[in-house]
Amino acid sequence: MIVLIEINATILAQILNFLILVVLLRAVAYKPVARLLQQRSDKIKGDLDKAEADRKAAEQTLEQYKVQLADAHKKAQDIVDKANVTARQEHDAAVAETRKEIERMKATAQAEIENERNRAFDEMKSQIVSLSLAAAGKVVMKNIDTKENDKLVNDFISKLDKNMFADLR
């Protein structure tokens, strides 16, 4: 039986108890938590640094892509321009070729027409001669009136001439 306020050996036991508690707590709880907090702050810092680096890399890549895209646009424009020029040249060449061909065909056709006409004219001439001879023979047989004879031959020839040339023209 001891009064309320009495200091005895309990004070030593309590100090010892508390020191044991602190050592245990430090080992069991404080150290792991403190280490974890440190780990977390390290990780967050590392993540932030990495995010910054990634952002920079992405910006750089974007810049590169923009340059490449502009380059590609320019190249495509060049190719289109070149193709346009080539097509224009080919078109002009084809037109010229066609014109030449047409000229050539026209010339051939005209030469052929000329030939035909000459041939027809020659044939006609020879027929005229034979017909004239036939007409002359008839006139000789009928009478020997010179006047009448001349008139007949001339009439015949002039008539034939007109008809034949009208056809040929």
Partner: peptide, 18 residues
């Protein structure tokens, strides 16, 4: 106002407090 005590190695301890 009264505490139980034990004696151990010649020292007095308040057992309930412990």
């Amino acid at each position: 106002g009264v505490r139980e005590t034990i004696r151990f190695l010649g020292l007095t301890f308040n057992i309930e407090t412990l």
